[in-house]
Amino acid sequence: MFVIGCHLSTSGGYENMGRDALSINANTFQFFSRNPRGSRMKKLDEGDINSLMDLARENNFGPLLAHAPYTLNPCSSTESVREFANIVLKEDLERLKYFKNTYYNFHPGSHTGMGAEKAIEIIAAQINSVMTEEQETIVLLETMAGKGTEVGSKFEEIAEIIKRVNLKNKIGVCMDTCHIHEAGYDIVNDLDGVLHEFDEVVGLDKLYAIHLNDSKNEIGAHKDRHETIGEGHLGLETIEKIINHEKLKDLPFYLETPNELEGHKKEIELLRSLRK
């Protein structure tokens, strides 16, 4: 089954997100766990969550993806910022106990001068402090573009974080196609080679989801600028290879392209037509 969706707003409630997904022929979606550029979390509404879970089950949705806020920086050199990140991680995972078949994705963070090695230790410690044996939610580290002092633009950094996480069965990776392209991985000319490298360094068994985005920038730009599918430097041919690749095609794909609902509907229609 081809599982494809986009990022949707929580403003109308959880069930409405599910109905928006159905309206654009999506069978999954991504949503922010709270205000993406702040700290406020939606008031708990178990009825609304249960209605979404019923809708998702009835329509055979793939895994939903909750995305942590952009303000989260678990490896900042500033202690108060790290403490805020820890609170958010704990609260978000507690909220996600009410959801089923849902992943939780977050950016590993920016080391803000302390260096990647120290940051990796801190990120892993943060994860270890919030994860529990009882949780059903799989936590995903997102591959990054390498903007500024971002951690996670190299497969080796992702692998080192995972190596230090205690609950290995609760941790995985969300690969962003724009990010790895801008980080310098040549998925346009050597997708097989990049996936082989990921498998050797991290392990394809740890790859749970794909952020499917084209890129406004050339390879190695380290700027993190998403583009509409087929209109960037990845191009439609590369996107087609990604969604049909034998090592990726059974994963859920989530669009984060600069589009509104109607634009995402057209992208999903296009991607479904390219699916083999």
Rank of each mutant, 00 (worst) to 15 (best):
H111C: 09
E237D: 15
N166V: 11
I158L: 14
G172E: 02
R225F: 08
F198W: 11
L207C: 08
Y104Q: 05
T28G: 07
I87K: 14
K168T: 04
A56C: 13
D190W: 03
A56T: 08
G47M: 01
D224V: 02
D199S: 05
T132M: 05
D92G: 01
T78L: 10
T228R: 13
E58C: 00
I210F: 05
A125N: 15
N217R: 13
L93P: 09
P69R: 02
D214Y: 03
V202S: 00
G5P: 06
D186S: 06
G193V: 01
F2V: 04
M131E: 14
E117Y: 08
L141D: 02
N101A: 10
A85T: 03
I161T: 00
K168E: 08
R164I: 01
L167H: 07
S23D: 07
I239D: 12
P74D: 01
P258N: 10
A183C: 01
H107K: 08
L261E: 12
E156A: 07
K168A: 03
F253C: 09
F106N: 00
G115R: 04
E182T: 02
L191D: 10
D250A: 04
L271G: 06
G18W: 03
Y185G: 04
S110V: 07
E269P: 07
R164G: 01
P36T: 05
G232F: 05
L212C: 06
Y103N: 04
E227N: 06
I219V: 07
H107F: 07
G193W: 02
D205I: 11
I24W: 09
R19T: 07
T78A: 08
N244Y: 09
F99M: 09
I171N: 01
M1K: 13
L8C: 09
K265Q: 13
D250H: 14
S80T: 13
I4F: 01
E197L: 15
L89M: 13
C6L: 06
D214F: 03
I162P: 02
A159L: 01
F155G: 04
N73D: 06
V139L: 15
R82M: 05
R34A: 10
Q135C: 09
E197H: 14
N105M: 13
L65D: 00
K97R: 14
K266L: 15
N101S: 12
N59I: 06
H211M: 11
E262D: 15
R34N: 12
A145T: 03
G115K: 05
S76N: 05
L248T: 11
I180F: 04
V201M: 10
E83Q: 13
T132D: 10
P63D: 10
A66D: 01
G109Y: 03
L274T: 09
V88N: 10
E269Q: 15
I49F: 11
D192H: 06
F84V: 10
D92S: 15
L255W: 12
V130S: 08
S273M: 08
Y104E: 04
N213I: 11
V88R: 00
E260A: 15
N60P: 00
I180L: 07
E46W: 02
I123R: 12
H196F: 13
A85M: 02
S215F: 08
